[in-house]
């Protein structure tokens, strides 16, 4: 009994300590971010690497999510005679919710795990050490550009997810279900608000991009420098960042859309 309590305490302390370390870590990285303005090439390279890595899976997923959404919503809405409003409902679901969240989950699985593994391996093969000995700070040269790249790539990917999802919904709605194509677009334009819906969706995806990339680079940098340690860091990245995204999504949704009843 005492043993169990002791283990629980030790576990909690360890967790807290890691949490503290990850905050110090991100602080040191963020302080170095302005330096990147002088070397935008490093960030562009990372946006490209991260974006290209995740683009195929995000486009395919977006297309199918949009198509399924149209099918499911149509079946319900037709009972209320509201099937001509399919356009705005599909768009709102995607822009407000599914776009940022599903993109972030896929982003964690594809780009986050790759980032953690890459950085962990650089540590295990002494590349980070050798960089330090060459008087180059790996936090600034390796971590900072990746963090910036992740934060910038995420909203772009989420936007593409929503765009292709809306198009997928359109194809199903007009081609399969006989919704009027003018109604799909015009209703959407009338009912989707730039600030309330689109901007809030973008804010969500920026926050998710920040959290997922932070977790990925920290796990990689903090990995035990062996192949087993890198494998564990990769797994932890996907699990922790998925949970963080879902938890944060609830909080953000409550803050953004909770009070307009």
């Amino acid at each position: 009994m005492i043993d169990t309590l002791q283990q629980l305490g030790a576990w909690a302390l360890q967790r807290l300590e890691r949490l503290g370390r990850s905050h110090l870590f991100i602080l040191r990285v963020v302080v170095g971010l302005p330096e990147l303005l002088a070397r935008p090439g490093l960030v562009v390279q990372q946006i490209f690497a991260i974006g290209v890595l995740s683009l195929p899976i995000i486009l395919v997923a977006g297309l199918f999510v949009g198509m399924v959404l149209a099918l499911q919503l149509y079946n319900t809405m037709v009972n209320f005679g509201a099937e001509q409003s399919l356009g705005p409902v599909v768009a709102l679901s995607l822009v407000r919710e599914l776009g940022p969240v599903v993109t972030a989950l896929l982003f964690a699985g594809r780009a986050g795990s790759a980032l953690a593994a890459e950085i962990g391996l650089m540590k295990a093969t002494e590349q980070l050490s050798s960089m330090e000995m060459m008087a180059v700070d790996p936090l600034r040269r390796i971590i900072a550009p990746r963090l910036a790249g992740g934060i910038l790539a995420m909203p772009l990917l989420a936007a593409m997810f929503s765009a292709i999802g809306i198009s997928g919904g359109f194809v199903v709605a007009t081609g399969l279900l006989g919704v009027d194509s003018n109604a799909y677009w015009s209703q959407m334009q009338a009912n989707v608000d730039l600030f309330d819906d689109v901007i809030n969706g973008v804010i969500k995806s920026v926050v998710f991009g920040m959290v997922v990339t932070w977790i990925a680079v920290f796990e990689g940098f903090d990995a035990i420098p062996t192949s087993e340690g890198v494998a564990r860091a990769t797994t932890r990245t996907v699990v922790n960042s998925s949970l963080a995204v879902l938890g944060l999504d609830f909080i953000l949704t409550a803050l953004m859309f909770g009070d307009n009843g």
Partner: peptide, 26 residues
């Protein structure tokens, strides 16, 4: 450290850069 050079036991080359870029790195 800019005035020190260290040859690591494993070499520790940057794996995403080719030989030329590795030497050019510092």
């Amino acid at each position: 450290r800019k005035r020190m050079g260290m040859l690591f036991q494993s070499g520790a080359l940057l794996t995403d850069l080719n030989v030329f870029e590795n030497v050019a790195f510092p």
